[in-house]
Write a protein that binds this DNA or RNA. Sequence first.
DNA 1: TATGCGATATTCT
DNA 2: GAATATCGCATAG
Length: 206
Amino acid sequence: MGLHIRPLKREELPSETQAMARFLIGRTLVVEQGGVRLSGRIVETEAYPPGDAAGRAFSGKSAANESLYLDYGHAFVYLIYGLYHMLNVVSEPAGIGAAVLLRSLEPLEGIRLMEERRGTDRLRDLARGPGRLAAALGIDRRYDGIDLFSDKSLWLGRETGPVGEITVSTRIGITREAYRLWRYYEAGNPFVSGPRSSGLHPRYRE
DNA sequence: TATGCGATATTCT
DNA sequence: GAATATCGCATAG
């Protein structure tokens, strides 16, 4: 466990959604739970900018999406399909309602616990996809609204090495604004979910 | 490897 | 009542 991850400084994180989604590729996400540290390299994100019809803020503020309206750098966690939690980073100044979805991690630390939670020892499958990512890290609604720059249990770290080329594509699993190129991933990285070459949404693929 | 489908809960119309 | 920022299993090729 000689891995030393330096915390990201708040002023390094862009407060504009697409810029943040791109910036976060190659950075690290760290969870501290009861003395155990889990971490991973962020290899895939999606941007849900202000006014986006596919975003959770589109139908206005409600109890379900309150934390989306916090200042950038807070966590926004919600449940989808009744089964999976999605971990987002609020991406604009307070009151706006936009976020970056963390889709996939390359596991670094706490792999044993991730395997246990996920019921597999296949490294590639531990946190590939947003539902798996949350499951591996034990993220649920209790993490909703926490500040990633003051809370000790969930925070963002600097890159641990060189960051590869970043590719953009259409977002996965949405119907509205489906043509937008707001998905970002590290090219060629096997820990990325979904299409890694075509860059086109299945709906628009021939 | 690719495609299809059911599971499941909360929110919104 | 319908939709949903998904996943794992089944089946076919």
